[in-house]
Design a protein around this nucleic acid. Structure first.
Lengths: 254, 254
DNA sequence: GTCAACCGGTTGTCCGGACAACCGGACCGC
DNA sequence: GCGGTCCGGTTGTCCGGACAACCGGTTGAC
């Protein structure tokens, strides 16, 4: 006969603060996530049932379910009907967020710096206007930058933005990423379409990046939109293949 | 004064079948999604409020909310408190699913074929064993394939799988993708970690793919796991950069 | 004319309950 | 020993309701 398996969440002293403006389900989700990432909940552990957890916390079952569901969506937990909710063996890092290279490098502890090569307002080419869904001949800001890490060239970034969206002072761009400036300007990014490919370096790119002409480069094209669906930024970037790759997690569609 | 704006979902004759085993919220989500993708619901349209929609369909508000929420997660709709739920201007296609190249090509109407170059059982190299989380010296199946589309070489696929997971008859691999065989064998993929990069083609790869040595290739490394977190498949693939790129949609973390 | 306060409408959060579907082990007949 | 059946436990689905937070326009004070 098996020993009475205690609910592993019982020894976690979870609690929620009803006075906080943070939703209860989110408070619970954060605490459970912390328990998983800190190792307090070992992978493979079977969480106690939702009903009991709800009763212990003084919450209703829907609220507990909402918390658990958010962690399932994030890939930390797996539920199986008739069995229970289990901590996944290989917790996911991130399912590829919509983040900027600058922020990613900073988070990784690298020291990103930027050299602004060009920053001009011009009439959009037909292709650019179409991609940004602007009228033919509309004004756009064309921004070309060289991104370095620890002084080593890493990527050449080319961006197009609708004119007037943002005032781009070159000195502000040097210290911060483009997405950071967009955030400050009140533009909240919602979604983006990305396309990742590869091609050989042109002579100009080779010179900028410190590679040989014809060396393989990783390319990324991205069109970002705000929450209204308006195209906000078009990026055409090339990375040194020896220095960069795109890492991300995928979840299977259920 | 504005004319009495009718609820745009009113003219959609939505209905749910309570006898169906398909959950009600899913039925509703599918119908709304079809209305968006078919153009019956124009981007920017403000959906009628949830309460009314629920009453008209004979459903409760939580059920309607669950349907709408799934479409918000999929990137088709946007909700704004105090305003309403709106059809997004640029509906997302897919947020990069965990799918196989074979299936993707087939869905795109291309005619994928496969040439099996090698299919052997061997003891795993230390790196492979570590990646697949197997014991040192464990047996793995090493699979090398050439994927063609309309007879043109497209990619060279190298996979490692734990031995015994699947019996890989070369003739079955020719007509179907690896993921299809895994599905048939009862392995349900749950998540994967991918890394996309680029490098120059070796002489052997160049010969296989019909490229010049040193030509830029797109590389993709993927470790797939089933729902228990067990590593199931390790892929190291190289694609002709002139023929392939990775396209996907991103949603900003809220 | 300007600005603040108000108000109707909408989504966000949360509750308590009910039944169905499903899994796994225990039990029983053979 | 073997296989089918039953049963307790868990998650999945759905309901009806309540109040809070928020947005946008209207109204009113000044």
């Amino acid at each position: 006969m098996p020993p009475t398996d205690h609910d592993p969440t019982a020894s976690l002293h979870l609690r929620v603060d009803r006075g906080s403006p943070v939703p209860l389900y989110h408070q619970l989700a954060q605490q459970l996530e912390a328990a998983v990432t800190s190792g307090a909940l070992v992978p493979g552990t079977l969480l106690g049932n939702e009903i009991g957890l709800a009763r212990r916390l003084g919450l209703s079952r829907p609220t507990v379910r909402q918390a658990i569901q958010s962690l399932v969506d994030a890939g930390l937990l797996v539920r199986r009907r008739g069995v229970g909710t289990q901590v996944l063996h290989a917790p996911l890092r991130r399912p590829l967020e919509l983040s900027s290279l600058h922020d990613d490098l900073e988070a990784a502890g690298l020291r990103p710096t930027t050299r602004v090569l060009r920053c001009v307002t011009e009439t959009a080419s037909p292709e650019t206007a179409a991609a940004l869904q602007l009228a033919e001949g509309a004004e756009v800001v064309r921004l070309e930058r060289l991104r370095l890490s620890h002084g080593e060239p890493l990527a050449r970034l080319t961006n197009h933005l609708p004119a007037g969206l943002l005032d781009l002072a070159p000195d502000r761009l040097a210290g911060s990423g483009l997405y950071g400036l967009l955030r400050e300007a009140g533009v909240t990014l919602h979604s983006a379409h990305q396309s990742v490919g590869a091609r050989a370096a042109t002579a100009e790119e080779a010179g900028l990046l410190g590679e040989a002409p014809g060396a393989p480069l990783l390319t990324m094209r991205r069109l970002s939109r705000d929450h209204t669906g308006r195209a906000v930024e078009l990026g055409s970037h090339v990375y040194r293949a020896t220095r960069h790759s795109f890492d991300f997690q995928l979840l299977a569609r259920r």
